[in-house]
Simulated scan of single mutants.
Amino acid sequence: MRQNVTVKTLAKELNISIATVSKALNDSYEISIDTKQKVLELAKKLKYERNPAASNLRSQKTKTIAVIIPQIANNFFSLAINGIEEIARKRGYHVLIYLTHEDSETETAFTESLLSGRVDGILISVSSSTENLEHFRELVKKIPVVFFDRSIEDIDAIKITADDYESTYDATVHLINNGCKKIAYLYALNCLITGKRRIAGYRDALKDHQLESGENLIVNHNSDEDLNYTNIKNLIINEKPDGVISSIEELALPCYYVCNELGLNIPNDLKIISFSNLSTAPLLKPSLSTITQPAFEIGREAAGFLFKILDKKPFDADEIPKLKSILIKRDSTGPL
């Protein structure tokens, strides 16, 4: 009686994982040509035969993708979702949206539940408290994942982001050109490469223009809104900066409130610029200068690359874009 040769048999003989054998048999772009050849040669030698029913079951698509985001109130994510849905709709896919509320444990629970086969792939903008790199290293091995906007540095996955370093550098130079000599920074997303690139742009711009920098001019974002307000107020009273860069829009409005409480004039006493996609930014008094990210385009590109992975289409790293933000100069930073 002939021994039944399975994928497990091939994996054991070659001392590789069952997943690798399966991907090689399905001609996945993730597997090297050398490994594919070894698998196919052994399969032929041992007279391996596919199980059509099992193969069909494994290849069945849910026609659904998941989008995991930290919040919905932020206008950036609303625009990004619109971009994602435009691409998904053209492909006949449904989009499931999951909100983590900036909680890394909720984020982990969502991703674990999605591994059950509920979706074909995941688009994720990680929460600001995310530090569990090992979880994401394992996740990208199990299901197609594309990160957008907020990403983690040491993860082997596609990341669709904007020019965080360059745009913060340019915003700092804009304040300098408008007369600022002492520029403070409101630091958020400090666990993520996104936040690290932004503050690096700020620091390098100050260094290149021989201006003061230091931890005394940096306020770290806190989940407690009242504490953010107090910390910003103390910064302005004690350090007396003449310019402020906010790395997220949630920290920009407290600057307005603090200035109102202290009787400071924006932009004469303090100039303010913030990363923001707020549609109301032009309506603030004074109107808020912003670093506005191409949120819709980021969503479209992220979805497009996820579908390339699902379609097993090869692509080069050079094809992955870094999209350009727009520095919109308004009244909060003074004369244009």
Rank of each mutant, 00 (worst) to 15 (best):
S325R: 00
L310R: 06
I309E: 12
D311E: 15
A295P: 06
G121V: 13
V5M: 15
A157Q: 10
I122L: 13
V5W: 08
I152Q: 09
A252G: 02
D242S: 03
E261P: 00
S151W: 04
G214W: 09
A157I: 10
P286H: 11
E138N: 15
V7Y: 02
I183Y: 01
G92C: 07
V140D: 07
E301G: 00
N268H: 13
P321S: 13
K38Q: 14
A171Y: 07
I33K: 14
P335K: 14
Q71A: 12
L175S: 06
S17K: 10
K324A: 11
L327F: 05
S22Y: 10
S128G: 03
P314K: 14
V126L: 13
L40D: 04
Y169M: 12
T106R: 15
Y229F: 15
D224W: 03
F315T: 08
I69T: 06
S28E: 11
L46N: 00
K141C: 04
A54S: 13
V173E: 10
L175M: 07
I236T: 04
V258Y: 03
R137G: 11
K45L: 12
I84L: 05
A295Q: 09
E49A: 11
E105T: 11
S17I: 11
E112R: 15
K12H: 13
G263Q: 07
G214K: 08
Y185A: 06
Y256C: 10
D224T: 03
V5A: 08
S78Y: 06
N75W: 02
H94K: 13
K182T: 06
H135N: 10
P282R: 08
S289I: 12
R91T: 03
E319N: 09
D156I: 06
V95D: 09
I232P: 00
T172I: 06
T161A: 09
I68F: 03
S287C: 11
V219P: 04
N220P: 04
H94T: 13
S17H: 11
A295K: 07
K285W: 08
N265M: 08
V21C: 08
